[in-house]
Design a protein around this nucleic acid. Structure first.
Lengths: 224, 224
DNA sequence: CATCCAAGTTCGGCAAGACTAACATTGAAG
DNA sequence: CTTCAATGTTAGTCTTGCCGAACTTGGATG
């Protein structure tokens, strides 16, 4: 069954479930899914049941939600589409990297497999999107090991930003404004485990910046 | 009300009604609309009623269907989207001019106004799409005067192809194969009013080609 | 000018995807 | 071990877009 046989909303659920476990191992819940999809939990319950009937995920009532290999394959396909489209919008149409998420969110359901292939070719088979997320190749792919969220990093000299979650456009705009983008190096000044604040300095700038909980959750770094 | 407030199917109806009168003056019927939309006539009746309630067209039962200025504006917007997208697919992603219709048909509902503007800019504000159809500028626009269908043209020396209807992908592929594309010059050898055949010679080629009814209906030419 | 048929319309129903309200389960705190 | 709030599920309803079946119209034909 090709991914295009699924409804847009089924594609969104699969992508969301897959993405939730890409960078952290905690399984996704109905409530979180409802928030991200912008629907009520009851709607999610219904939808999950249908996806289960199609063999795309496993789910016992009140239990955890997990993708089957088939569901995972569809999800990876959608993620690949999304990230290739984001890259395309930035490189070919001059979008800012903080503007592409919503556009790609819609386009990923509309473009044909053929168009995705042509975009991939045109871009020279890129491996990372504008936020630093890895672009799955036509099959599956492993995710970046060794990256941690900024809020969990130790204050120990310089780290490199490898990805910035594209979930919140307003936040992306803020990061863009202060020059915090993928591949940039920064120094963690203070890390206070039981408060919100992480203080950082971007390489080559004088000024310190305080990032709140949400912000320091959205930024992933590696040592070096 | 922006065009994006309409459902996809409403956008399709408006575009189809507008397009039907772009090159010929005969008003569109419910049956034709049903065929082009791939739905039953009863569905068209229902939909027309809704569009009428929204003030986008006028229609007395069993009467003709005509767009209001508001409906026409939305329709032109969709046509602009479609033709800009076709041009983009050909020029930027290397599609053949005979492959773009179906892709554009889907994308026109998915891309944002912003993306359309960026595409327009990127292409240098083109005025004709790959099939020779005029691309409406951001407001309305008049259509090409003086063009006639090949099947109505007199055999009188050389004419220039100005447009090829993009309704039938298989036919487009055929035209592409024999080198019959927009801007090409050709000579009409025979024109037999009460039969199917039109015989033409493409400039610079030896061979004559016979075009059937449907084919010679789809090609529009001007003298000179 | 009466008739009849193709074209158009109305009506009841169905599936998808959403909602609200009410009900069920789980597990954490006492 | 009990209780209860948060989380998840079920049931019933709405809207949209489609269908088939049955009905209405109006113009071409004799």
């Amino acid at each position: 069954m090709p991914v295009s046989d699924l409804t847009n909303s089924a594609q969104d659920y699969l992508k969301l479930i897959w993405t939730a476990t890409e960078w952290s191992a905690t399984p996704i819940t109905v409530t979180v899914l409802a928030e991200r999809m912008g629907v009520r939990p009851s709607t999610v319950s219904d939808s999950i049941k249908k996806l289960k009937d199609q063999g795309l995920l496993t789910h016992a009532p009140y239990g955890t939600i997990e993708l089957t290999p088939a569901g995972s394959a569809h999800a990876v396909d959608m993620v690949r589409r999304h990230r290739l489209l984001e890259t395309f919008l930035v490189q070919v149409l001059g979008y800012g990297w903080d503007e592409v998420h919503d556009e790609a969110e819609v386009l990923e359901h509309a473009v044909s497999d053929t168009m995705i292939e042509r975009i991939d070719q045109r871009l020279g088979h890129p491996t990372r999107d504008p936020h630093g997320d890895p672009i799955p190749s036509a099959d599956g792919q492993p995710h970046r090991p060794g990256a941690i969220q900024l809020c969990h990093a130790e204050p120990e000299g310089e780290v490199t930003v490898v990805r910035i979650s594209d979930a919140d456009p307003a936040m992306l705009r803020y990061f863009s404004d202060i020059g915090l983008t993928p591949d940039v190096k920064l120094t963690i000044q203070k890390q206070r485990p039981y408060t919100d604040a992480t203080t950082i300095t971007l390489s080559g700038q004088q000024k310190n910046v305080d990032l709140g909980q949400a912000a320091s959750n959205a930024v992933w770094v590696t040592n070096s």
